[in-house]
């Protein structure tokens, strides 16, 4: 299977089952239409006949020969022999956990999937006792995994920061005895950040996700306090302080775009202007009936915006200006292994979420869905059958995924979105799929453009001094 497409002046071809990405000139792009899984050494007569009105016969033969070489090398129309690995998918050790340390929030964001902080379960904070049980649970269920990951989430985690600190301290005190290495992340709306919290986060958290939707008017339209006021002016200086003291440790400024802010390139650029470089803006996940939701009719506009953002990123990097957009990150040389791509995010199998009451769910977006409650830390229950069900939810068991060109990049998409929109974790959510495919097309095109940029620099400059890293 291949996926060929044109974007920003590039003719691109992804060979799905090898992962090879080819940039083609016009003739190769046209000849490819006459190739399939059963290429023969001799060029098809139909191709020579039909394309000879536009190209010379010898050039057509030469081009076909080049494509046939790729076919023989297993880099074009390569075979799908991954299903055997999918069949082996069984329960894996739990290696990561979302701890909902707070089911309370000091914001009332209109689009919050956590029902404005409490996941519909009433406002409460996790006790240290429950948090310690969560740490014990992941250690006990992680098998031989060395790296364990814990994300402090909510609600607003800073509303229960003493328990965050004590939980980290507890995990650090026992990790070596169990041959584990904890990597912590925290996601915050920033309102309660102060110098002490910034120092602790920068010392202990491998990654920090800072919520901001972009421009002041965009952010303050939906990210509001209980009395309806925006939070932009409070949080931005705190984020700038945190990031300035963070050194080279990971962070993301992470926003949500809605149908009201489909011009989100301006929000990404605004984040860059504020001094941030690691940026992420995701489409809102919500009931399609709500006025801010992204609907099927919005897709053409959003697609154009992703293209605009991709071109902007390329232009800026050519000028030596850098920012990273999370959903355009793609490693074509050494991305995740095929097994990881089959497993996907690991929701319900390698990854679980726990609530202040000690309830266990497949992930942070399933919290509150009673039929997906997997167990409880306090009574020691854990539904292994549900774990197996999620373990078997991979690209070969999901409707529409097996024959999709993007399957090894989206890994079957989001189980929670599938359930919320389609009522079944195995049924792909169409809008989410289309958005993911567009982001992938842009990400691959960016790689082609930056490779071109490097080639041009090599050919136009004899000195290393003028080299701008197109990374």
């Amino acid at each position: 299977m291949i996926h060929k497409y044109q974007l920003n002046g590039y003719n691109l071809c992804l060979d799905v089952h090898s992962g090879a990405v080819h940039v083609l000139d016009d003739i190769a792009y046209d000849v490819l239409d006459y190739c399939d899984e059963n290429m023969k050494e001799q060029p098809p007569e139909k191709m020579l006949s039909e394309l000879s009105v536009r190209y010379g016969i010898e050039e057509l033969k030469e081009t076909y020969e080049a494509l046939y070489e790729l076919y023989q090398a297993g880099q074009l129309f390569s075979k799908d022999d991954y299903e055997q690995f999918a069949d082996l998918m069984t329960r894996a050790p739990i290696k990561s956990m979302c701890i909902n340390i707070s089911h309370d929030c000091n914001l009332r964001c209109e689009y919050c999937f956590a029902a404005k902080g409490d996941f519909g379960q009433g406002r409460c904070l996790m006790s240290l006792d429950t948090a310690k049980k969560a740490i014990d649970f992941i250690i006990a269920n992680s098998g031989t995994r060395h790296n364990l990951e814990v994300d402090f989430f909510g609600g607003e985690p800073l509303m229960n920061f003493d328990v965050v600190k004590q939980t980290v301290e507890y995990a650090r005190s026992i990790e070596k005895a169990h041959n584990k290495n904890f990597r912590f992340t925290i996601t915050t709306n920033g309102l309660l950040l102060d110098d002490d919290k910034i120092d602790f986060i920068n010392r202990e958290m491998n990654n920090v996700v800072l919520s901001l939707d972009g421009r002041r008017e965009v952010n303050d339209k939906l990210r509001v306090t209980p009395n309806g006021k925006g939070c932009y002016d409070i949080i931005v200086p705190k984020y700038q302080k945190l990031v300035s003291k963070r050194g080279d440790k990971d962070y993301y400024i992470r926003g949500t775009f809605t149908t009201f802010s489909k011009d989100f390139t301006a929000d990404v650029l605004h984040m860059k202007e504020l001094g941030f470089e690691q940026l992420s803006i995701e489409p809102v996940v919500s009931d399609p009936k709500l006025d801010y939701s992204i609907k099927e009719d919005d897709l053409p506009t959003v697609f154009n915006e992703y293209e605009r953002l991709a071109k902007t990123l390329i232009d800026m990097r050519k000028r030596g200006e850098y920012f990273n957009f999370f959903h355009f990150m793609i490693d074509l040389d050494q991305g995740p292994c095929a097994i990881k791509r089959l497993r996907g995010c690991g929701c319900g199998n390698e990854y679980v979420a726990v609530t202040p009451q000690g309830d266990i769910y497949p992930c942070h977006q399933f919290v509150g869905e009673e039929k997906f409650k997997m167990g409880n830390l306090n009574d020691g229950t854990f539904d292994q059958d549900m774990k197996l069900r999620f373990a078997r939810a991979n690209v070969y068991s999901k409707t529409n995924c097996k024959d999709c060109w993007a399957k090894f990049y989206c890994s079957g998409g989001c189980n929670a979105n599938n359930y919320q929109y389609e009522g079944d974790i195995l049924k792909s959510h169409r809008v989410g799929c289309e958005l993911e495919k567009k982001r992938l097309e842009c990400a691959i095109m960016i790689k082609a453009a930056l490779a071109d940029c490097q080639d041009e620099q090599k050919s136009t400059c004899d000195s290393d001094d003028c080299f701008v890293e197109c990374r």
Partner: peptide, 16 residues
């Protein structure tokens, strides 16, 4: 007519 951007190793990674 063709520039390949990467050294594809997806199949190798399935085994390893």
């Amino acid at each position: 007519h063709i520039k390949t951007l990467n050294k594809a190793n997806l199949k190798e990674s399935a085994a390893k």
